[in-house]
């Protein structure tokens, strides 16, 4: 009985020619004298043969290669499209400082202009005020005009 247990453990190895010489001798000897293990063995052998004779599928010669070519080309296009989009995203990130600078400069310019408006010095006001015309007031008028 103990031997039967050991043989059962070895049966698939024996069946698949994976057993070593000592195991083969042991199993063969046991199978010759044990109808139970012998029946188990022939049942497994039948299943192995039946299964190994299972029908095999065959693909048309170039079918897979041409399908793969299509899919590889498609994935390459996808990759290129992705790299184009990400490239544009990177470029726009890099270009962000440009509008920011433009806006900052415009804001600064507007602020300066407003400030200047507030301190605008017109020649009419000067004449009406009756103040004496000094070199300083003349210079201010000239600067005002050229601005």
């Amino acid at each position: 009985m103990n031997q039967c247990k050991r043989v059962k453990r070895l049966l698939s190895r024996y069946l698949d020619q994976e057993a070593d010489d000592k195991e083969v001798i042991f199993v063969k000897g046991h199978l010759a004298g044990c109808p139970f293990c012998s029946e188990e063995y022939s049942g497994l052998l039948r299943i192995k043969r039946l299964f190994a004779a299972k029908e095999r599928k065959v693909l048309p010669a170039d079918y897979l290669v041409s399908r793969l070519r299509e899919r590889i080309a498609a994935s390459r296009q996808e990759e290129e499209r992705f790299s184009l989009v990400s490239g544009m995203a990177r470029l726009s990130l890099r270009l962000i400082p440009v509008p920011v600078t433009v806006i900052a400069i415009s804001l600064l310019f507007m602020a300066l202009t407003l400030q200047q408006r507030a301190s605008e010095f017109s020649i009419e006001e000067h004449i009406l005020s009756g103040d004496p015309t000094t070199i300083e007031t003349a210079a201010r008028v000239i600067l005002q005009r050229t601005n």
Partner: peptide
């Protein structure tokens, strides 16, 4: 493999 063949049977 052993169990597989038994179940298949």
């Amino acid at each position: 493999i052993y169990r597989g063949r038994q179940i298949l049977k």
